[in-house]
Design a protein around this nucleic acid. Structure first.
Length: 644
RNA sequence: GCCGGUAUAGCUCAGAUGGUAGAGCACCUGACUUGUAAUCAGGGGGUCGCGGGUUCGAUCCCUGCUGCCGGCACCA
C-alpha cells in the first residue's frame, strides 16, 4: 500500500500502482470530469500514471495556472496532427509551450499561406471535437527510430538520438496520430477547449542554429477559457496602439527613410525628448563622473588591440582613406576612454576614475534586426568606464547598482531583475582571470539581492558574458508587463592589459586598473522607445517634449493668449500658442491626439478674469484657475524627480 | 543575414481580366468669431518604391534590387 497526502492534508491509503484517474474517480465523477492532470509532489504528471510511492497529490483543473502549460502543449500536438492530416509528408520537429501560447516547427517545401493557417485552425477545432484520449507508450530507442525513419520523420530520429541514455523514449498517441514527447498531457484532446487561435507563420532555424536548415514555425495562443483569450488579444491590440513607431509618427518625434536604414531623423519634439533624457542623466552623473567625448573615427589598429576587430569587424562601419589607412566608426566607447585614461600618468589617488560619455556609436546591425528605435545602426549610449583597483571593484559595482535602480525609479520602473552573465565561448583572457571576475560578481549579486530585501530578483545567464568580461544585465518591466533589458555592468580585467593601461600605486609600482563598463539606459534611442510605449505617449510633464498649448477660443482673446503663453515660457515651460481660426472643439481634439499634456484654453471670460482653463490629457473636464496658480502648479509638476 | 509577407497622395486605405488612379483625414484659399474631441465651401497634390523583361501599351504579369512588417539568428 502507499499513502497519498491530499491538499487538505488528509492522508489516505491506496494500492501501489493505482493511477491518478483511479484516485480521482473514487472521489467523485464530477471531480474526475473536471480534472486535467495531477501533480505528484508538485510535479505535473499524466492522470493515467500509476503511483508507486507515497506522495502528495493535487488534481489540476482548468482554472489551475499549471493547466495552461498542458493546454498549450496539447494544442501544439493537435496542430501538428492537423498539419499532417492536411498535408501528408510534412515533417514535424518540435512544438514547445512558450509565454502565452505555443508553436510547432514543420519541414515543408511549400510555405504556409494565410489561408492554410485558417484551414489548420479549422481542422484543429474538428480534432478537438473528436476528443481522442492521450495514451502514453514507452518504446525502445531502436523501435522508435525505426518507426520515425520509416515515416520519413528525420528530425524526430535526431531528437531520439539526443535523448540522454538514462531516459526512456515516450510516445503519446491521440487517436491514430502519435508523437515523440516527454509529456505530460491532458486526459484527452477535448480538454484543450476552443479558446485558442493561430497567430502567425515564421521561419525558424532547426535547433536555433543559423547554420541549420530553416523550418516553418506556426505560432498559436491558447487559454483555459474564452475570456482569457479575449483579454490576451485585447492586450495585443493595446500594445499595438502604443507602438513607438506609430506614436513617433503621430507625435511628430522622428522618422526613418530609405536612404538611412536604421538611423534616426530626430524631429524637434523628439529631440527635445532626447535632450530631456540626456539633461536628466547629466545631472545624475554630475557628482561622481567626469564627462568626456572620444573621437568618432579611429584607426583599425585600436580595434585590433581591443579585440573588437577580431570578433566584430563584419559589424563595423569601416572606411579606407586615400592613403590606404583603414578607420572604423566607433561601435564602442571603451577603446577611446582607455586612450584618455592613458594620457598622462595616473596615480592610485585618481582612482576610482569614472569617465562618462553620451557616446554616439555605429554598428552595422543585420538588416533583419532593425526595429524602429529599439534596434538601430547609430545610437547613443549613456556609457561610462570606471577605472579602479581590485579593492574598489565591489564597492563600484554597488554604487552603479544604486544609481541604476534610482534612475529607473525616477521613470516609474520598480520591478527590476538583475542577472549575471558568465564567460562566453568566444572570449579573451585566461580562465584564472575569469574565475576571479565571476567570483567577485557572484558575491556582489548576492548582496544586491539581500540589500533589496528581496525586492530585486537575480539570476544567472550562463555563457552570455561579453568577450572581455562577465556582466550584470538589468531588466525592467514596463506598464503592460513587458520586460526590457537596459542597464549593464561589465567587469573587465582584459582591456586594460591589452591596451597597457596602468596607474602608479602608493608603493611607486605600476599596476593595472580594473575597468568597469556600465550603461544605465543602454541605447538612449531604445530607452526612449521603451518610454514612449510605457507611457503610451502620455509622458510625465517633466519629460514631455511639449508641455502645454495655449489655445485661444475667439480672436478677442488673442492678446491675452499671447500673454499667457509668454508667461508660461518665461517660467521655463515648453509650449505653443494656437491662435488659429478654429473652434475650440477642433483645437482640443487635435492637441489631444498630439498628446499635449495640458491644453490651456482662454476666451473672453478668462481674459477679463485673468484666469486660465486647463484641460489635462486624458481628462474630459477642465479646471479654472488664475494664471499665477497655473504657472506655480505646472512648474512644480514639471520639475524632474531628481530636482524635487 | 535567413524564411514569409508587403510597398498606391503627408497619414490611413480603396482600385482596375493590362488601356498611366480614387476616398477620408492632412495641406492651401475663402467664409464663419466660435466655450472643451472634427464649421462650411472651394482648390492643389501621385514617375502607383527603384531597375530590367514580356506587351501595341505595365502601377497591375515575370524578374532583380531596396525599404518596411512578422519571426529566426545576431546584439561587443
Amino acid at each position: 500500500m502507499i499513502q497519498l497526502t491530499f491538499p487538505d492534508n488528509s492522508v489516505r491509503e491506496f494500492a501501489k500502482g493505482t493511477t491518478g484517474a483511479d484516485v480521482v474517480g473514487g472521489i467523485s465523477k464530477s471531480l474526475q470530469k473536471k480534472t486535467l492532470a495531477m501533480a505528484l509532489n508538485g510535479e505535473l504528471r499524466d492522470l493515467s500514471d500509476p503511483i508507486e510511492e507515497n506522495a502528495s497529490i493535487e488534481f489540476i483543473n482548468r482554472e489551475d495556472p499549471r493547466a495552461l502549460e498542458l493546454i498549450r502543449h496539447d494544442a501544439a500536438h493537435v496542430m501538428a496532427e492537423a498539419v499532417q492530416e492536411l498535408w501528408p509528408g510534412t515533417q514535424v520537429t518540435i512544438g514547445p509551450v512558450i509565454e502565452n501560447g505555443f508553436y510547432y516547427d514543420f519541414k515543408r517545401d511549400v510555405p504556409f499561406s494565410t489561408e492554410d493557417i485558417a484551414a489548420i485552425e479549422k481542422k484543429m477545432r474538428q480534432l478537438i471535437e473528436r476528443n481522442e484520449k492521450f495514451t502514453k507508450e514507452i518504446w525502445s530507442r531502436d523501435q522508435a527510430k525505426a518507426h520515425f525513419a520509416e515515416q520519413g520523420e528525420h528530425y524526430k530520429v535526431e531528437l531520439i538520438d539526443a535523448i540522454p541514455a538514462d531516459q526512456t523514449v515516450k510516445i503519446y498517441r491521440q487517436g491514430e496520430w502519435l508523437d515523440l514527447c516527454r509529456g505530460p498531457h491532458l486526459v484527452s484532446t477535448g480538454q484543450i477547449g476552443q479558446a485558442f487561435k493561430l497567430m502567425k507563420v515564421a521561419g525558424a532555424y532547426w535547433r536555433g542554429d543559423s547554420n541549420n536548415e530553416m523550418l516553418t514555425r506556426i505560432y498559436g495562443t491558447a487559454w483555459s477559457n474564452e475570456a482569457d483569450l479575449k483579454a490576451y488579444l485585447h492586450m495585443l491590440e493595446e500594445a499595438e496602439k502604443r507602438d513607438h513607431r506609430k506614436l513617433g509618427r503621430e507625435m511628430d518625434l522622428y522618422h526613418f527613410q530609405e536612404e538611412g536604414p536604421g538611423v534616426v531623423f530626430w524631429h524637434h519634439k523628439g529631440w527635445q525628448l532626447f535632450q530631456n533624457l540626456t539633461n536628466y542623466m547629466r545631472r545624475r552623473l554630475a557628482d561622481d563622473y567626469q564627462e568626456v567625448n572620444a573621437p568618432q573615427i579611429l584607426d583599425k589598429s585600436l580595434w585590433e588591440t581591443s579585440g573588437h576587430w577580431e570578433w566584430y569587424h563584419e559589424n563595423m562601419f569601416v572606411t579606407e582613406t586615400e592613403d590606404h589607412r583603414v578607420f572604423a566608426i566607433k561601435p564602442m566607447n571603451c577603446p577611446g576612454h582607455v586612450q584618455i585614461f592613458k594620457h598622462g600618468l595616473k596615480s592610485y589617488r585618481d582612482l576610482p576614475l569614472r569617465m562618462a560619455e553620451f557616446g554616439a556609436v555605429s554598428r552595422y546591425e543585420p538588416s533583419g534586426a532593425l526595429h524602429g528605435l529599439m534596434r538601430v545602426r547609430a545610437f547613443t549610449q549613456d556609457d561610462a568606464h570606471i577605472f579602479c583597483t581590485e579593492d574598489q571593484l565591489a564597492a563600484e559595482c554597488h554604487k552603479i547598482n544604486d544609481l541604476i535602480l534610482s534612475v529607473y525609479k525616477d521613470f516609474g520602473f520598480e520591478e527590476i531583475v538583475v542577472k549575471l552573465s558568465t564567460r562566453p565561448e568566444k572570449r579573451v583572457g585566461s580562465d584564472a582571470v575569469w574565475d576571479h571576475a565571476e567570483e567577485v560578481m557572484t558575491e556582489v549579486l548576492k548582496q544586491i539581492e539581500e540589500n533589496s530585501g528581496g525586492r530585486i530578483k537575480t539570476g544567472i545567464l550562463e555563457g552570455e558574458g561579453a568577450f572581455y568580461g562577465p556582466k550584470f544585465e538589468y531588466t525592467l518591466r514596463d506598464a503592460i508587463g513587458r520586460e526590457w533589458q537596459c542597464g549593464t555592468t561589465q567587469v573587465d580585467f582584459n582591456l586594460p592589459e591589452r591596451f597597457g593601461a596602468f596607474y602608479v600605486d602608493s608603493d611607486g609600482e605600476k599596476k593595472q586598473p580594473v575597468m568597469v563598463h556600465r550603461a544605465i539606459c543602454g541605447s538612449l534611442e531604445r530607452f526612449l522607445g521603451i518610454l514612449i510605449e510605457n507611457f503610451a505617449g502620455h509622458f510625465p510633464l517633466w519629460m514631455a517634449p511639449q508641455q502645454f498649448v495655449v489655445a485661444a477660443i475667439t480672436s478677442d482673446a488673442d492678446d491675452y493668449a499671447k500673454e499667457v503663453h509668454a508667461a508660461l515660457k518665461a517660467a521655463g515651460l515648453r509650449g505653443e500658442l494656437d491662435l488659429r481660426n478654429e473652434k475650440i472643439n477642433y483645437k482640443v481634439r487635435e492637441h489631444s491626439h498630439a498628446k499635449v499634456p495640458a491644453i490651456i484654453a482662454v476666451g473672453k471670460r478668462e481674459s477679463e478674469e485673468r484666469t486660465v482653463s486647463i484641460r489635462r490629457l486624458g481628462s474630459r473636464n477642465q479646471v479654472s484657475m488664475t494664471l499665477d496658480e497655473a504657472i506655480a502648479s505646472m512648474c512644480e509638476e514639471a520639475t524632474a524627480p531628481d530636482l524635487r
